[in-house]
Design a protein around this nucleic acid. Structure first.
Length: 436
DNA sequence: TCTGGGGTCCTAGGACCC
DNA sequence: TCTGGGGTCCTAGGACCC
């Protein structure tokens, strides 16, 4: 069988994809630096300590669900002495980089798909070597970073996702699962509900159910015209992939970014324009810094305000407003000035705001920005760019928030809650763990 | 009392043009 | 008075992903 599949892959040029996915990634990052968390229930919270966004296996087994609001599972957490962490994205981002660089050693082509997942091209391997290579990757990532990964291997990305689920859920697999025969694929499809297929979400799974399509196998067998009617072109592509026809290729170069967004919920009720202006200034500074880091400038900015959907007793208000700049910019001072004017436009008194944000779109490479003949003097333009870059380099060297624009406010009493954050083990000199 | 944030793509409908 | 058809662009809303 292996031989046949290998030959087939050479003759028909079939790609084999491996999907490496870190297990309970954020929890594993916390554990990597805190061995006392091993074998205990651990969860990580979203920004503002709002929801559960990562759970250890122990936490899953006592009934804590993904996305559960923290306050709703508080009694389970107390009863089982669950260890709770605010999210520490600086740590997770850094650990992700380390994991991805190890994965890169094993394949000529890798697509970093998310902070904790990467697709790898396994075509350079013979089928019998794929499994042993995957086990070697697992061993090395665990040894070098402390992060456990699971690896699924198959002829399409969608099937590799399925294989990965099996690798994760089935302890007998030892963290690696290869979908290398028709029988295995068939069995996998039969036991996968449509909602668990990559690309089929909650809403579409329900619609499929109404049509009598319950499993991946049902979907693979369904009529193309019907599939397209219910799921659209993407759904049809998914069905093809389940049948083993590869339609989604490996994207080894990241697509150019189309937007940069920064929005956060407030740590307390906010109703004054002053507080909102401070918050939106900070968010603008944060998003603009990311623009500069990627050498991009924004042509359009959108600012929005939201009272939130959960409090039924308070009147609801959401509004957003956009501005197109004469010259694309990534300059914090200039962008924050616009942002404050925009928020004044949509601000209404007597509402209790929960959230605000900014989105930059129409992005272009800084090097290609055309100056406006009438409004911008090249010397000023260069100066303002230099100022922002200097702020960035000071903050990189001395830590975020070392220098900031005064309109971001000093007290920041509205700032998000983050009461249970672990140290920045890998990115701040004074928080490096010490071996005792 | 307390419910995240950051992205992408597709589709349908309207406006507009020739 | 009769009143086509094809194409493009934009936008809002809906769906998905992690």
């Amino acid at each position: 069988m292996f031989r046949v599949l290998w030959l087939k892959s050479k003759i028909e040029n079939i790609t084999m994809f491996a999907l490496a996915d870190c297990n309970n990634f954020y929890v594993s990052c916390e554990r990597a630096f805190n061995p006392k968390l091993e074998d205990r229930p651990v969860v990580v919270l979203s920004n503002n300590d709002g929801c559960i966004i990562a759970r250890s296996e122990e936490a899953k087994s006592i009934g804590i669900g993904m996305g559960n609001p923290f306050f709703q599972v508080r009694d389970i957490i107390d009863r089982y002495d669950v260890q709770v962490f605010s999210s520490n994205y600086t740590l997770y981002g850094d650990m992700s980089t380390r994991v991805m660089s190890i994965l890169s050693e094993f394949t000529p082509e890798i697509e970093v798909y998310s902070i904790d997942e990467a697709f790898m091209n396994f075509n350079h391997l013979k089928v019998p070597e794929m499994e042993s290579t995957a086990r070697e990757i697992r061993r090395k990532v665990k040894q070098w970073t402390g992060i456990p990964v699971s690896i699924g291997i198959a002829a399409t990305k969608t099937l590799a996702k399925l294989a990965n689920r099996t690798a994760k859920k089935n302890p007998a697999s030892g963290g690696v699962f290869l979908l290398d025969s028709d029988e295995k694929i068939k069995a996998s499809l039969a036991r996968t509900e449509t909602g668990d297929i990559w690309g089929i979400g909650r809403h579409l799974a329900k619609r499929l159910q109404r049509e009598g399509v319950y499993t991946a196998q049902d979907l693979a067998k369904a009529d193309d015209v019907e599939i397209k009617k219910i799921l659209g072109v993407c759904g049809l592509r998914t069905a093809m992939e389940l049948r083993g026809v590869s339609c989604i290729k490996l994207e080894d170069a990241p697509a150019p970014r189309k937007s940069v967004c920064c929005s956060r919920s407030f740590g307390r009720d906010v109703s004054t324009l002053d507080d909102l202006s401070e918050a939106i200034s900070l968010y603008t500074a944060d998003a603009a810094e990311r623009l500069r880091h990627e050498k991009l400038a924004a042509g359009t900015m959108t600012v929005f305000l939201d009272t939130g959907r959960f409090r039924k007793k308070c009147p609801y208000y959401f509004n957003s407003v956009s501005k197109t700049m004469a010259v694309p910019s990534s300059n914090t001072g200039e962008l924050a000035g616009h942002a404050i004017k925009l928020i004044q436009n949509i601000y209404r008194e007597k509402f209790i705001y929960k959230k605000a944000g900014i989105i930059f779109t129409d992005l272009s490479a800084t090097a290609a920005v055309q100056l406006d003949l009438f409004s911008e003097n090249p010397a000023n333009f260069a100066k303002s760019c230099m100022l922002s870059e200097t702020v960035d380099s000071i903050n990189r060297r001395f830590g975020d928030g070392s220098v900031f624009y005064a309109n971001e406010g000093v007290g920041k009493s509205w700032a998000m809650l983050r009461g249970r954050c672990s140290p920045h083990y890998t990115t701040k000199w004074d928080e490096i763990p010490e071996a005792g």
